[in-house]
């Protein structure tokens, strides 16, 4: 049988190999925060409604509160810490700073990662496509205008 009972999970987190021993039903959000100590992943609603826990798995956006850790075995996981290279912030991160697109900052990593996933999929999205794509993420400070401006500034620079 090619199926496997999985307990030891190995994945690549921001270009670094990670090995964790997890209960089979643990969600990725808890693994990253509690076992790997990545605190940029935020617990918001725990049911896929707010997007604060967004990560990229093999470059695609995943809500880590709805993702079992065992499902990322052998995959690449990216958090916002993985976007900067050699100390240089990613253009999306720079745009968020330039446009004051963070207020309390709780939702910011999720928005940045989701925007990266969108731009990797579609380098030149329309404003409506950006709004639609980001609509799964909530900003309880209601700072959407600046977030959208930051997003569109990245699109325009491409």
């Amino acid at each position: 049988m090619s199926s496997s009972k999985v307990n030891i999970i190995r994945f690549v987190l921001n270009d670094e190999p990670v090995e964790v021993l997890v209960p089979p039903t643990e969600i990725l959000l808890n693994t990253l925060r509690e076992r790997v100590n990545v605190k940029s992943i935020r617990y918001g609603c725990g049911e896929g409604s707010c997007g604060a826990c967004t990560v990229l798995v093999d470059g695609k956006p995943r809500l880590s509160c709805l993702t079992l850790t065992i499902s990322v075995d052998g995959r690449d996981v990216t958090t916002v810490e993985g976007l900067s290279k050699d100390g240089e912030l990613h253009p999306i991160q720079k745009a968020f700073i330039e446009h004051n697109a963070a207020q309390c900052g709780y939702c910011t990593p999720g928005f940045i990662l989701l925007l990266k996933a969108l731009l990797d999929r579609n380098p030149n999205p329309s404003r409506d496509e950006v709004i639609d794509s980001l609509s799964s993420n909530l900003c309880r400070c209601t700072g959407y205008k600046n977030i959208l401006e930051a997003a569109m500034s990245v699109v325009r620079r491409r």
Partner: peptide
């Protein structure tokens, strides 16, 4: 949520159906 459940991640349909 039970922490002691058996987990399977089959890569082919035959195994999944089994």
């Amino acid at each position: 949520m039970s922490a002691s459940c058996e987990v399977y991640a089959p890569s082919d349909l035959k195994t999944a159906l089994h």
